[in-house]
Amino acid sequence: MTTSSTLRPGVGDRSVTDPGPPAPRPRGDGAAALAFLTPSIITFLVFVLAPTVGVLVLSFYNWNLLSDGTFVGLDNFDRLIHDGRLLGVYGSTTYMALAILAVNVVLGLLLAVLLETRMPRWLRGFFRLSYLFPFVVSASAVALIWRFLLNKDLGLVNYLLGLVHVDRIDWLGSSAFAPVSVIIVNSWKTIGFSILVYIAGLQSIPDQLREAAIVDGAGAWTRFWRITFPLLSPTIFFLVVINTINSFQIFAEPRVLTQGGPGDSSRTIVEYLYDRAFGDFDLGYASAIGITFALILVVLTAIQFWFSRRWTFY
């Protein structure tokens, strides 16, 4: 609504002031740019920049929802250092994120490559659609389904494992398996996305290259490692970036599956921040946690771009 009204003045000016003959091209498009950018600038200022500055400011305050807070200097950061749980939560977040990343990047590639096999179109379509479907289902529905399936005594997963003589596993109630459950459930939901992105990457590799390699007598294994894999490196890099960022931000799966427990074994940093902010109403401290999280994301992004220069062939 606001967009159309902000866009019109600039447009009107132009169509009125230069009719028939083409005017000499203006040196800048300042007015038009302002009109085009206004909706983004306003929403950016209010809902991105202000809250980002807000995190910085809040982290120096002791702030709860009832009063407007008192300035406490670096107290919140001092608490961060002495918060015994924080490191553990970062540990479990990192563990789960890296495992999810690995499943997506490795298993996703395997399935995408296998899907290249000659097969009827309907079958390929069926595989693709079934792999992708959980991606469009909400994480809370997915986690609720798996809460049934992973039930220790009555769940389908332990029943199937029982058929091959594996003892019942306490998937959701033991600190060894609770994070594994989150890894399985989140990977199950997201792998279809990775597979599809891989398929697109594979299709962008020119057929001639592989055909030439076949003529030269290269086997499937050699062709994969010498041709497909290097040419796929931008795709792999994209998936590593996307999956890292997404898997570090997991919230719904542990929330619904395990409530982060037992202990903090399956707690993610977003869940911890949420509990400090909206469970304890400790907004200042939650903001300090938010800053550590933002710093980690910045470092991760920097590392990834550094790596991308070393091993992708653009």
């Binding site: 950018l37 809250p51 980002t52 809040l58 931000q249 919230f251 907004l283 999280f293």
Partner: peptide, 30 residues
């Protein structure tokens, strides 16, 4: 073509690294 394009675009790209999970507390206050 307009002045400040580079700076604005850098801000956009920079904000890619600040997800809503980080700013959720002040966003709630806003």
């Amino acid at each position: 073509r307009f002045r400040g394009k580079g700076v604005l675009f850098a801000l956009v790209i920079g904000s890619l690294m600040i997800p809503i999970q980080v700013t959720i507390v002040p966003l709630f206050l806003v």
